[in-house]
């Protein structure tokens, strides 16, 4: 334990990140720049989320880390182990027992509770980036609330595909102000962002941005009156637990077309199996 400062980062770095986090919760949905550090893992592996978690953890925390809903994939295992070693915190796979949940690309099926903190790993924090590559312009667009381009993009989806074809990283509007990228969660999870009792923190390491949603913040997925938002879900049920309401992964089981649906949330699925659902 004494080989590292608590939670790996030095105190000055943590203070800088903590100040950014406080401004982020004070201006919900706005991306606060921060001086992202080199972490002992490559960009794209959740360095932003790791820095946010490291600056937020207290020794009494119980940490859960998920990657695409799973507790047992490489990214989740290595980050969980990282904090076991550097912060000495207890870890868990149970969403309702965790005090801090770091996630890549999912929100747990088990509803979040008051007092919990969820930290999202974010690759591209700027929802307008693929529509407008210049940071100077996107910054201006946010300051003016000029989001017409995003609606044009969604409209073109409808014109081309007959429906809004964006299925993940589906843009949301925070209250009446900023349009925000919810990180590449499936749009199935978007409704869980709205009015969540948990504190939601977003960290983008390579892009050096932190943003946040305080609890009970209204978050609306962008849509049109005649094409309302649809949190779509695969028509099927989990082959292990039989859930008909959870978000499903399709798994190919052989090379002759065999396939099955499984819950992407391993904790939710395992517990349902255990309870004999």
């Amino acid at each position: 334990m004494s080989a590292y400062n608590f939670a790996y980062l030095d105190e000055q770095t943590k203070r800088m990140i903590r100040r950014a986090l406080l401004k982020a919760v004070a201006i919900p949905g706005y991306q606060v720049p921060f001086a992202s550090r080199e972490m002992p893992m490559p960009y794209g592996w959740g360095t932003g989320g790791v820095q946010v978690t490291a600056s937020t953890l207290v020794p009494e925390d119980r940490l859960k880390v998920i990657d695409q809903g799973a507790d047992d994939t490489t990214n989740a295992v290595s980050i969980r182990r990282f904090f076991e070693v550097t912060a000495g915190v207890e870890t868990t796979t149970e969403a309702d027992r965790a005090t801090v949940i770091q996630t890549r690309h999912r929100i747990p099926e088990t509803p979040l509770q008051e007092g919990q903190i969820i930290v999202y790993q974010v690759p591209i924090p700027e929802p307008l980036r693929f529509l407008e590559p210049r940071e100077t312009e996107t910054r201006k667009m946010h300051s003016l609330g000029e989001y017409g381009l995003m609606h044009v993009k969604l409209y073109e989806d409808i014109a081309r595909h007959g429906e809004i074809a964006t299925t993940y990283a589906y843009p949301v509007r925070v209250g009446k102000s900023y349009v925000m990228d919810p990180s590449p969660i499936p749009k199935f999870d978007n409704p869980k962002l709205n009015g969540s009792p948990a504190i939601q923190l977003f960290g983008a390491g390579r892009e050096q941005r932190i943003y946040a949603l305080p609890p009970w913040t209204p978050v609306k997925s962008l849509d049109f009156e005649d094409y309302p938002f649809d949190p779509s879900r695969a028509a099927g049920q989990c082959a292990l637990c039989g859930s008909t309401s959870s978000y499903l992964d399709e798994v190919i089981t052989d090379d002759s077309g065999g396939r099955m649906f499984l819950c992407s949330d391993t904790d939710y699925c395992a517990r349902r199996v255990q309870e004999g659902a």
Binding site: F6, E11, P59
Partner: peptide
Amino acid sequence: DPALDAARAFRVALNAMSQ
């Protein structure tokens, strides 16, 4: 214990600013 005490104090500060 600056690292641990500051972590705990920050958690209070974060909870306060977000609620």
